[in-house]
Amino acid sequence: MPGRILSTARIEFLIALRNRWVLIATAMMALFSLVLSIAGSAPAGDLGADRLSVTVASLTSLSVYLVPLIALLISFDAVAGEIERGTLPLHLTYPLGRGELLAGKLAAQLAVLALAVTIGFSVAAAVALQTGGPAALEGLPALFRLIWTSVLLGAAFLSLGHLVSSLARRPSGASGLAIALWLVFIVLYDLGLLAAIVADDGGAFTRRVFPWLLVANPADAFRIYNLAASDAVGAASGLAGAASSIAEWKPLSSLFFWPVAAAILSRLAFGRVQP
């Protein structure tokens, strides 16, 4: 079984490489990180935070938008594309389970994403270290944390991409659903919460329900965890107070829960696809 998943992952990575997804994802992450690390370096001295932590704070805000977007772009075609090309029936007659096929695709796409964030963020870190001197080394744990949480966030959205791909069964429909999913999770969800808080005006909702709803969204959980886990990053973002009011384990559990839950959902949806 691991052999079949590995072989699927290898062939999918090769396809991603040929389709330039590896190049596009990496270039996108590197370019944005570079811009942020150069533009965001000005306030470092005033905040009492090291140069790299400041960069990580900026990168956190960037990743919340970019990582889910790249993940959905890479993954929405996974099932629908195979249906459209007509390659799915043949795959499913091989001694390869549907779960194994999805796992192989997920592994390859996760590798693409991990490569993109690692290279992208390393570029930013190199700039911060060069201009910030040895003090910036203090930010390295925060950078490392940012990388592995980005991979977890990406894994959740890759599986969500597989989910919409299985539900839509056509690439055009899947891409529409993927965009909708991104809008809901990344933009509308926060706007909705904001509206609810304003309406509630410090009532029971704001105190009891809101913190849970905030960590229930993987993108928010990612942001809170990264800002709360490092004082320097929190200080640089100006959100230290808000972020540290939520216990660290809550967003962390959300970050581990989502990739698993999304993978299970995508497997269930794929099981209903009849080639």
């Binding site: 090769l14 396809i15 007509g86 390659t87």
Partner: peptide, 8 residues
């Protein structure tokens, strides 16, 4: 009409 991924 067997099909394969065109990039392979």
């Amino acid at each position: 009409n067997v099909a394969f991924h065109p990039s392979l």
